[in-house]
Design a protein around this nucleic acid. Structure first.
Length: 854
RNA sequence: CCCCCCAUAGCCCAAUUGGCAGAGGCAGCCGACUUAAAAUCGGUAGAGUCUGGGUUCGAGUCCCAGUGGGGGGACCA
């Protein structure tokens, strides 16, 4: 007898009666209200110390910045991170999945200034709101170890880190040309300036200023930061690895010292092609370099004037103009000559803006025959071009003379016109040239990097104060670590408006420190740290979030770290990820960490778009997280995001259907609801259950882990939909509701669905007679016997076309398969009287036959 | 200019890693329910894989050359 509340329609198909026994049907609001208090009580995701002894996984999402409520981007990122955290729990791991807030920084400060309130007020109100939204969205966070970087208990350790860096000589102050954001009125690190010369935060065009600032010596780690990327191959997105490699920009070559007539000191230049030294026919220096100014000042009045004009012209250009590759070369002769150290040749020295002052030494040796830029310049100003590498094309023919063709030859070939280097191929010539330079003391092998040291001081209020004291005589001393934190002064009475110098400097009482022993007066460093310092090590603090004796417990950190799975946006491909890698290596070298890479695996989610464009209030295409959440519920939202496509791809909200997800959840839920009213009892043996359904269930159990681990969440959801479909069919027109296989399938659905839809899955789990929570239920293993097919379909191909399909035992031998294929009607019809020339057998999948005309 | 990624049904996307192009969803169409519609439920049709070569018995998958799109770097010596 069918369970009450169901009846058959005209086609004999059993349909569920909506108005029947469960008047509510699937009601996401009721389900959310039912389970939230239970989870609050159970705290199922809290872990303590080293865990329970099961294997450990540390799964982390990049922590949010508290500007307003959560948005759709957060919804997506935290959905994916949570899928992975819940997955590893289901696989029997202790999972650490914490959450915190990156709560220092300019947006809070700017918003607070605009509203005339304390940044603390604005920041912590937003955090409270995001926490409430998270609770409803239900990522499986351990709420017992929350941190906020703006808490003194956190930034105290940020200062501790700074002092460690200072102690090791990795934090230093220097005067240099820096990036200045005229809107936010603070300096920026190179990483915070976009390719078009604008600030990644304010969007303002960044200008250069000469200032004394604090730096972290990240360039000391350039080689390791680059080389260790190889270990992340396959575990990090190729795109991020590529971006970091480009950013570090290692370039191997040689430093060559050129004598300049009338100048004491030699001038070093960097080249990647020391083999072409004999082809250097002139030298070029950057017009904005000290050397150019010096050489011009020693020249005739005409040259001096010409130089002033040229320099002014260079400095007037915007970054965009300067970078235009198609630009015609400009420059001027500086009325000086240099001497080529390998052959004593006298070559003219020019100034041109195609040479950059801040790369290498701001001067180059120009080899026009083998460098396009030098050739363009040489042709424009009629400078000599000398071929020193005999480059050939594929057929061994000599390439045309660059002076004639206008095309520099940069390939490999035998050296010519190059003294001792003659006849050598490029690689050997490079080695020999370096050897020559070294023995003569006029050069050496060297490496340059695009990466610059990390500028970490900021002239703003809402950040970690730099724990350094300045004496009147310019002496510096670190704050005593025992007296940390150096707390921010109250904002009351301070003018926080950006004005080019730190507001902290104006807090006279705070800034002035008297040494009780010596009576000497010191002034606190007025700057605060770049907030990327805060986030460079926060993942370690989660292990000891409530520990007021140390930044982190090395034992806990080494047990749980490094992060097994990190998830976040690709906008941090360089910034946060590079800084974190650097600080991790430093802490490793200081003996605190066993590991020297922080993030073993990285998942970058795409963006959530609307109608093909980034969502924004001004465009009027904003999809509000809060309204989606209240309209459709957390589950439907999460399923929609997971199902939309591969997680790395952008999601266009116009392409997806939250209603479709809700429909699927209702279908899944109804299966458990049906079982509750007439299904096999909880604990029943599944052995006698319907074999076809059991096969489907166990294929799902077998495939799901690989799919989740490959981030194919969309496929897992599709497989769940499929499983719901076959289970529905089994209930309505197959094995029937009471079959144990139906319960087995529903339990598997509930467990796997819990990664995406924790509420619906929990409700299903309860309806199936289990205690909460499904989040801690371990997935059953797939039974191998249910995975192997006794019979499979074998395809018979003739000349690449499918001509027949035969059902064969899965264990068929190659001989049997070939015999069956040859005997098949489809094959005989296709072959007729043609001659068989080749037979390939891949039992039991396929037999492929190649023929030719008889 | 250099490097990386992508291109499958009207749309979003699968395809056991070289073996029958289709798992799932959206939109569509048909049917059930309804006085009717929406919602819901059931059922269906629909591409030969961006283009051109190549390797192979066999290519969406591998190789080469393009086209289109996305991203990064860039007068970096």
């Amino acid at each position: 007898m069918p369970p009450s509340g169901e009846r058959r329609n005209e086609n004999g198909v059993c349909v569920t009666e909506q108005q029947g026994r469960d008047a509510e049907g699937y009601d996401f609001r009721a389900i959310q209200e039912r389970w939230l208090p239970v989870w609050d009580e159970l705290k199922p995701f809290e872990v303590e110390g080293l865990g329970t002894g099961r294997p450990r996984k540390y799964v982390l999402d990049m922590f949010p910045y508290p500007s307003g409520d959560l948005h759709m981007g957060h919804a997506e990122a935290f959905c994916f991170g949570d899928v992975l955290a819940r997955y590893w729990r289901g696989r029997g791991y202790d999972v650490l999945h914490p959450i915190g807030w990156d709560s220092f920084g300019l947006p809070a400060e700017n918003a607070a200034i605009k509203r005339g309130v304390d940044p603390r007020e604005w920041t912590y109100a937003n955090i409270a709101q995001q926490k409430a939204s998270f609770r409803l969205y239900a990522p499986s966070f351990d709420w017992s170890r929350v941190l906020h970087t703006s808490d003194p208990e956190y930034y105290r350790w940020n200062q501790w880190l700074f002092l460690k860096m200072y102690e090791k000589g990795l934090a230093y102050r220097k005067a240099s040309w820096v990036n200045w954001d005229p809107v936010d009125q603070t300096v920026l690190a190179n990483e915070q300036v976009l390719a078009d010369g604008t600030s990644e935060r304010s969007g303002a065009l960044v200008v250069k200023k000469k200032l004394t600032q604090w730096y972290f010596r990240i360039t000391d780690y350039a080689d390791r930061l680059l080389d260790d990327l190889d270990r992340l191959e396959g575990a990090w997105p190729a795109k991020v690895l590529n971006m970091q490699r480009n950013w570090i920009g290692r370039s191997r070559g040689a430093e060559v010292e050129f004598e300049i007539e009338g100048r004491e000191e030699k001038v070093p230049v960097f080249t990647t092609r020391p083999d072409t030294l004999f082809g250097a026919t002139f030298m070029v220096v950057a017009p904005d370099s000290d050397l150019a100014a010096e050489l011009a000042s020693g020249a005739s009045p005409e040259v001096r004037m010409q130089f002033q004009d040229y320099l002014a012209q260079t400095q007037k250009q915007t970054e965009i103009e300067r970078q235009s590759t198609e630009r015609e070369k400009t420059g001027m002769f500086l009325d000086h000559f240099a001497v080529n150290p390998v052959n004593g040749e006298r070559i003219p020295v020019w100034a041109s803006d195609y040479v950059l002052a801040d790369y290498g030494h701001g001067a180059i040796m120009a080899v026009p025959a083998h460098d396009q830029r030098d050739l363009d310049f040489a042709l424009k100003f009629e400078l000599p071009v000398r071929v020193v590498v005999d480059v050939r094309d594929e057929d061994g023919a000599a390439l045309p003379d660059p002076a004639e063709s206008g095309v520099a030859t940069s390939g490999d070939g035998a050296l010519v016109n190059s003294g001792e280097l003659d006849g050598l191929p490029k690689a050997e010539a490079i080695a020999k040239a370096i050897e020559l330079l070294e023995t003569r003391g006029t050069g050496r092998a060297t490496t340059t990097y695009r990466l610059r040291d990390w500028l970490i001081s900021r002239q703003r209020y809402w950040g970690t104060p730099i724990p350094i004291l300045h004496g009147e005589d310019g002496e510096m001393k670190p704050v005593d670590p025992a007296s940390l934190p150096v707390e921010l002064p109250a904002s009351e009475g301070l003018d926080l408006k950006p004005k080019g110098s730190s507001p902290l400097g104006a807090a006279t009482e705070w800034a002035t420190v008297e040494d009780p022993e010596t009576g000497r007066t010191w002034t606190r460093d007025p700057d605060t740290m770049d907030t990327f310092v805060d986030s460079s090590w926060y993942y370690l603090r989660f292990l000891s979030a409530n520990d007021d004796t140390q930044a982190f417990d090395p034992e806990l950190v080494n047990a749980w770290g490094p992060i097994d799975q990190y998830a976040g946006g690709v906008e941090h491909a360089i910034l946060h990820l590079l800084y974190s890698r650097f600080i991790t290596k430093v802490l490793h070298d200081l003996g605190y960490l066993d590991f020297d890479e922080p993030f073993t695996a990285l998942l970058n989610q795409g963006m959530v778009l609307q109608d093909g464009a980034k969502m924004s209030k001004s465009k009027g295409n904003l999809v509000e997280f809060a309204s989606e959440l209240s309209a459709h519920g957390a589950d439907a939202l999460r399923v929609t995001l997971a199902f939309a496509g591969p997680p790395e791809d952008d999601i266009d909200w116009a392409d997806v259907s939250v209603q479709g997800s809700a429909k699927f959840l209702a279908r899944a839920w109804r299966i458990a609801d049906d079982i509750e009213h007439g299904g096999a009892p909880v604990g029943v043996s599944f052995d006698g259950g319907d074999t076809a359904l059991r096969r489907a269930t166990h294929h799902l159990l077998a495939d799901a882990p690989g799919l989740v681990e490959a981030y194919k969440f969309n496929v897992v959801v599709a497989r769940l939909m499929e499983q719901v479909n076959v289970t529905r069919k089994a209930i309505d027109s197959g094995a029937g509701i009471a079959d144990p296989a139906v319960r087995e399938s529903a339990e598997a659905i509930s467990m796997i669905l819990s990664l995406f839809a924790p509420y619906a899955a929990e409700d299903m789990w309860a309806k199936l007679g289990h205690e909460p929570t499904v989040a801690l239920a371990e997935w059953p293993a797939a039974i191998p016997e249910l995975l192997v097919q006794d019979e499979v379909t074998m395809v018979v191909q003739v000349d690449g076309k499918v001509r027949d399909k035969i059902t064969v035992p899965a264990s068929i031998t190659a001989e049997e398969a070939e015999a069956l294929a040859r005997a098949s009607r489809g094959m005989q019809r296709a072959v007729r009287d043609r001659q068989i020339v080749n037979v390939i057998v891949r039992a039991p999948k396929i037999v492929s036959i190649a023929t030719k005309p008889a």
